[in-house]
């Protein structure tokens, strides 16, 4: 497993999302899609042509969109509320809190083009705050799949989960990392590569970069464990504690601010359960300059080579402590 390089073919995870959504729509007449004039960007054209009456487009009105989603669930339907993650979470955060999470409405929130997927459009369209905003809300699992296989599995899981869910998807191409037939489990990290020197943890578009970083480290004789941790809440405490126990250091990376996201969630576990050297990679608390998502991730030190270097400096801290 460790010798196999990460595959080169890239997938837009929206395709996996809508493929499952359309199948669910055929199986279950209660499945509805709700969107904010985002039929195209959410790739809901196929769903719309198959089930025109079940595509609810509220127009450019995100607060109403989320409230309508809660009402549809109250009326016995299974709504997938889809919109650009920056607007779905930012514009309607209070609706997500009160109407969805606090009311425990059976609504699936699907944040499309999260992170810096809208790179050049600028920080208004970046959604690098959404983990922080959503993971503080009770009742709301927060999930960022790493590839098309996990996306499909997570959508399938969400449809059967009896409560609200926030699925954070991207449009940036990623290679498939998980095996075909993978079954999603909320709050369970996936071991993608084992090692004893350091643990690299990521989700979404960063997991494959972690795998590449681990390959670089391996060429230097450093064996890194790689965990894909799609579920930001509830965080996989057991996997974090095991990572500290087995490898002694944790490096995280995410397409999100370094404040309040996956790294912070892991740090909360490390501080409370298993203190160890740790570093969080992400957007360093600034509004990003102009550039594509891939450019910006590299710019912020998350190119695989830079991740490998960060891992090595963490190893130095670890041995300095020892």
């Amino acid at each position: 497993m460790n010798a196999i390089a990460t595959p080169a073919k890239l997938h837009d995870c929206r395709d996996a999302f809508v493929a499952v959504l359309e199948r669910l729509g055929a199986e279950n007449p209660n499945v509805v899609a709700v969107c904010n004039d985002s039929v195209g960007s959410s790739k809901l054209g196929g769903f719309k042509s198959k089930f025109p009456e079940r595509l609810v487009n509220v127009g450019i009105a995100e607060q109403n969109m989320v409230g309508v989603g809660a009402g549809l669930a109250n009326g016995g339907l299974l709504p997938f509320v889809c919109g650009a993650s920056c607007f779905l979470t930012g514009r309607s955060l209070e609706q997500v809190k009160a109407d969805i999470a606090y009311s425990n409405a059976n609504v699936k929130l699907v944040g499309i083009s999260s992170g810096m997927a809208y790179g050049e459009l600028g920080p208004t369209h970046h959604s690098i705050e959404d983990f922080a905003w959503t993971r503080v809300l009770p009742n709301l699992p927060v999930i960022a799949p790493c590839d098309s296989i996990e996306t499909a599995a997570a959508v399938e899981w969400a449809a059967n989960y009896p409560g609200p869910v926030f699925l954070r998807l991207s449009r940036v191409g990623v290679p498939d990392l998980l095996p075909a037939g993978h079954v999603f489990q909320m709050g369970k990290a996936n071991l993608l590569r084992d090692g004893d020197a350091v643990t690299l943890i990521a989700n979404g578009t960063l997991t494959h970069r972690m795998m590449k970083a681990a390959e670089i480290l391996a060429t230097e004789g450093i064996q890194a464990r790689v965990l894909n941790m799609a579920t930001v809440r509830p965080i996989d405490v057991e996997a974090v504690v095991a990572a500290v126990r087995d490898t002694g250091a944790i490096l995280t990376a995410e397409e999100h601010s370094v404040f309040g996201g996956l790294g912070s969630a892991i740090a909360e576990v490390v501080v409370a359960e298993a203190p160890a050297p740790m570093k969080i990679l992400g957007v360093p608390g600034i509004f990003a300059p102009t550039g594509s998502a891939e450019f910006l991730l590299d710019e912020f030190g998350m190119a695989p080579s830079a991740v490998a270097e960060a891992a090595k400096s963490l190893l130095a801290r670890k041995s300095g402590r020892a």
Partner: peptide, 10 residues
Amino acid sequence: LPVAVGMALA
């Protein structure tokens, strides 16, 4: 009101 719209639409 938005939630009620969803209920009526359902």
